[in-house]
């Protein structure tokens, strides 16, 4: 699980172009949206595409993302339980 969390942090930084953020700065339970990393609605859509492309998880309802993308910890748990690749 810790490998998956590390992988997710690296993907989030790279795919969302978080130029001034390092992996070490993202704690497992940090909020990804709002006051945490400050991601926006386009970032949320980008994460939905990432779940599909990299882990074979299709979210039919974008509102599901609100809970799943709460933190790296929550994301990693969801991916571990639902991944198809």
């Amino acid at each position: 699980m810790s490998e998956l969390k590390q992988e997710l942090k690296e993907k989030i930084i790279e795919q969302l172009n978080l130029e001034d953020v390092s992996v070490e700065e993202i704690a497992d339970n940090d909020a990804l949206f709002g006051d945490g990393l400050g991601l926006d609605s386009i970032d949320a859509l980008e994460l939905i595409v990432m779940l599909d492309k990299d882990y074979g998880i299709k979210l039919s309802d974008p509102k599901e993302g609100r809970k799943i993308f709460e933190s790296v910890e929550v994301m990693a748990n969801y991916i571990a339980e639902n991944r198809t690749k």
Binding site: N17, E46, V49, D52
Partner: peptide, 9 residues
Amino acid sequence: YYPSPAVFV
């Protein structure tokens, strides 16, 4: 087929 929302905008 994985269009990027961040590119599309």
